[in-house]
């Protein structure tokens, strides 16, 4: 897949130094600093024709070899006319990881951002309804962070018991 037109759009909008590209198999990745990510996505949507947000996810790089930042957020954009895919990647850090919401650009980002918030605690500013989506309201941890144990912290068994005599 040819990505030259996409790159030229990004160069004209963000400048030469603002992003780093890399490629692995057929994945073409663009790394953007967190404060420029909204500009980059806006340019890609409006000028390069990436009309679908195919995927939005996050990774916790706590124990990853040679990692410099704590959380990476990945946007997979798809151009439905040409079938071109790009992966826009950015990094955020503790204590309060925060990114601008892309809900105004793609309505499909609604639940995807809520899920990232639920699992990693990354706040998306400007999201209309940022609540927990998969876990109960009272849950206080972010389970996909690497410092949360696989078997949890006994939340799963904190419920009343109904014996036969009382049912």
């Amino acid at each position: 897949m040819d990505h030259r037109s996409t790159l030229s759009v990004l160069r004209s909008q963000l400048g030469e130094q603002a992003f780093v590209t890399s490629e692995f198999r057929d994945n073409f990745r663009i790394e953007v600093p967190a404060e420029r990510v909204l500009d980059a996505l806006l340019a890609l949507k409006d000028q390069a024709g990436f009309d679908m947000l195919a995927e939005l996810t996050a990774v916790d790089y706590l124990h990853y070899p040679n990692a410099r930042d704590r959380y990476g957020v990945v946007y997979c954009l798809l151009n439905t006319t040409t079938g071109e895919r790009v992966f826009v990647k950015t990094f955020v850090n503790d204590p309060d990881p925060c990114l601008p919401s892309v809900f105004p650009l793609w309505k499909g980002a609604d639940w995807l951002e809520r899920e990232v918030y639920d699992m990693f605690g990354i706040v998306f500013e400007g999201h209309p309804d940022l609540r927990r989506i998969l876990l109960p309201e009272g849950f206080r941890s972010y389970p996909l962070r690497k410092d949360y144990p696989l078997r949890g912290r006994l939340e799963r068994h904190n419920f009343p018991v109904i014996p036969r005599a009382e049912s």
Binding site: D51, M52, L53, A54, W106, K107, G108
Partner: peptide
């Protein structure tokens, strides 16, 4: 348009 905007496949 909605289908594309809402990431439907």
């Amino acid at each position: 348009e909605d289908a594309i905007n809402l990431s439907v496949t």
